[in-house]
Deep mutational scan, measured.
Amino acid sequence: TEKQERAIEYIRRLGYSEEEARRILKKANGNPDLAKEIARRIG
């Protein structure tokens, strides 16, 4: 989804690889607090 793409872009800007960014997002899917934090940061 567009939100996922924005989140991946944001995480990659922090210096993670695409693969790492996707792994972090997968974790965020099972972790509402982390997901909220990422969403808050990407606006």
Rank of each mutant, 00 (worst) to 15 (best):
G30S: 05
E2F: 04
E9L: 10
A35M: 04
K36C: 11
Y16I: 06
I42F: 14
E5K: 14
E37W: 10
N29I: 05
A21N: 00
N31H: 07
A7F: 06
N31D: 15
R6A: 15
A28M: 04
E37P: 01
E18P: 06
K36D: 03
Y16L: 06
I38K: 03
R13L: 14
R22P: 00
R22V: 07
E19W: 13
I24M: 07
S17T: 14
A39C: 05
G30T: 03
A35V: 03
T1S: 13
I8C: 05
A39S: 04
G30D: 07
I38D: 03
E20V: 09
A21M: 03
Q4Y: 09
I42H: 14
K27T: 12
A7G: 03
E20Y: 08
I24E: 00
N31G: 02
L25S: 01
R6T: 10
L14S: 02
E37G: 06
K36I: 15
R13T: 14
Q4T: 12
I24P: 00
R13H: 13
R22S: 05
A21V: 05
E37F: 07
T1W: 13
R22Y: 13
E9P: 01
K26T: 10
Y16M: 06
A28Y: 04
K3A: 15
R40F: 07
R23E: 13
Y10N: 04
I24L: 08
K26M: 13
A21L: 03
R6G: 10
R23G: 10
L14T: 01
G15K: 01
I8R: 03
E19H: 10
Y16N: 02
A39V: 05
D33M: 08
A7T: 10
R12Y: 04
I11L: 11
I38E: 04
T1G: 10
A39R: 02
P32R: 03
Q4F: 09
R13M: 14
T1I: 13
P32A: 13
R23P: 00
E2A: 13
Y10L: 05
Y10F: 09
Q4P: 05
N29P: 01
K27S: 13
R6K: 14
R22W: 14
Y16W: 08
I42Q: 14
E5V: 09
T1N: 12
R22K: 08
K26H: 11
R23L: 14
E18A: 09
K36P: 02
P32D: 05
E9R: 11
I38Q: 04
S17E: 03
I38S: 03
G15W: 01
R22Q: 08
R12K: 14
E19S: 12
E20A: 11
R41F: 07
R12V: 14
D33C: 07
R22A: 06
L14D: 00
A21Q: 01
K26N: 10
I38F: 05
K26A: 14
R40M: 13
N31R: 06
A35I: 03
A7W: 06
K3V: 13
I24Q: 01
E2T: 12
I11K: 00
K3S: 14
A28P: 01
R6I: 08
R22C: 09
I11G: 00
A7I: 10
A7P: 02
K36G: 05
Y10H: 06
R41N: 13
Y16S: 01
R23C: 08
E20Q: 12
E9I: 08
G43I: 15
R12T: 10
R13N: 14
R13I: 07
A21P: 00
R12L: 12
L34K: 08
A28C: 09
R12P: 00
G43M: 15
L34P: 01
N31P: 01
K27V: 14
E37V: 12
R41Q: 13
G30E: 04
I24D: 00
G30Q: 05
I24K: 00
S17Y: 02
I11Q: 00
K3F: 09
Y10I: 06
T1H: 12
N29E: 08
N29L: 10
Y10W: 08
A21T: 05
D33L: 08
E5C: 14
A28W: 03
R12W: 03
A35N: 01
E9K: 09
Q4L: 14
L34D: 05
K27I: 15
T1Y: 12
Y10E: 09
L14I: 06
L25E: 00
N31V: 06
L14V: 02
R6S: 13
N31S: 07
R40E: 14
R13A: 15
R40S: 09
R6Q: 14
A7E: 03
K27F: 15
A21W: 01
E2G: 10
I8D: 02
T1R: 13
A35T: 02
E20L: 07
E18T: 08
R13V: 06
K3P: 13
R13G: 15
N29Q: 11
G15T: 00
G43H: 15
R23N: 12
Y10V: 06
L34Y: 07
I38Y: 06
G43R: 15
I24N: 00
E37A: 14
E5Q: 13
A39H: 02
R6L: 14
G30R: 04
G30I: 02
E19F: 13
I24G: 00
E19K: 10
I42P: 10
R41S: 12
E9Y: 06
L34E: 06
R22L: 09
I8T: 03
S17A: 04
I8K: 04
K26D: 10
L14G: 01
R23W: 15
A39D: 01
K27H: 13
E37Y: 09
R23I: 11
E9A: 10
E9V: 07
E19V: 11
I11F: 06
S17D: 05
P32M: 06
I42R: 12
R13Y: 09
K3N: 13
T1A: 12
R40A: 09
Q4M: 13
E9Q: 10
A21E: 00
A28I: 03
N29D: 09
I42N: 13
K3T: 13
R41T: 12
A7L: 09
N31F: 05
E18F: 08
R22E: 05
K27M: 15
